[in-house]
Amino acid sequence: MKQSLWIAKRELNAFFQSPIFYVVTTVFLALYSWMFYSLLALFGAQSFQAPQFQQMGQILNVNQFVIEPSLANMSVILLFIIPLITMRALAEEKKNKTFPLLLSSPVHMREIIAGKFLGCLCVVAVMLLLSSYSVIFILFMGSPEIGPILSGYLGILLMAACYISLGIFASSLTDNQIIAAVISFGFILFMWIIGWAAQSAGPELGELLNYISLVSHMESFLQGVIDSSDVAYYLSFIAFGLFLTYRVVESRRWS
């Protein structure tokens, strides 16, 4: 575990010393801020019509109308952003001809992959922490429910970890960072849209497709419910992605 933490620290230093982190974080915050502002402005306009909504049996709730859709939008933004973070994880090692040294090092390959994963996850965690200014703003302006906010951020972090595991797997397949980013985006997008075919499929296949989809397990988190089955799904997904990476790297060791 010490070796994994050391590699994670090395990855973090590399990110913070690279312009990629600052460019990606700026784009992420700019897109999220615009979406948050749009939802907040819409909520403000609807607040003036609150009596009409009450007559229709609807109650304006800042969690439901601002925070929940903001976090849902964040998960979409990360779908585009995370492949840019993970593309260098192993592809850069191959491009710089340091991959053979990595394979022959005394550090176990599982620890190397875990370190790469933790490094990328910490980078995303920093980005999520920076985005929490929106929650602080709403806490000052209103009185939202804290539970759904915390569970929503936990769900986003778990989903981002799934993205990262797929991104590192894609990075292990090639020595070209651009190709790694494109493959990673394709994998992640596929796991997003796989549930779209559930309605046209049979009941059993449709239920399976819904379960496999990354999106379907996010809904309960956004509503303030932490379901153990959803947590188990995300953790299993992460483990499977890292296992695939391990198998690819191990096959290169003996090729």
Rank of each mutant, 00 (worst) to 15 (best):
L60H: 05
M109W: 14
K2F: 14
L5M: 11
Y234H: 07
S18L: 08
P100F: 02
G115S: 06
L102A: 10
G206L: 07
Y37D: 09
P69V: 03
L222N: 03
L121Q: 10
I194A: 02
F28G: 00
S228R: 15
A161N: 05
Q46E: 15
L39R: 06
A125P: 01
F221C: 02
P100V: 05
M35L: 14
F16I: 09
K9S: 15
F15S: 07
D227Y: 10
L102P: 04
T98N: 06
G241K: 01
K94D: 08
R110D: 10
S171P: 03
A170S: 04
N96P: 09
E219H: 15
L84A: 09
M141A: 15
L29K: 04
I112G: 07
L29R: 02
S229K: 12
F237I: 01
S165E: 02
L42R: 12
I7S: 01
L118F: 06
I238T: 07
L31Q: 05
I168W: 00
A30D: 07
G119E: 00
F221P: 00
A181I: 05
V182L: 10
G44I: 07
M218F: 11
W192D: 13
G115W: 01
F15D: 03
L189K: 12
A239E: 08
M218D: 04
K116R: 08
L60N: 04
Q54R: 12
V62S: 08
S165A: 09
R10W: 14
F137G: 09
I212V: 09
P148Y: 00
Y233S: 07
G44E: 14
S4F: 03
L158E: 01
A180K: 00
G142V: 07
G155Q: 02
L29G: 01
Q64I: 14
L90I: 07
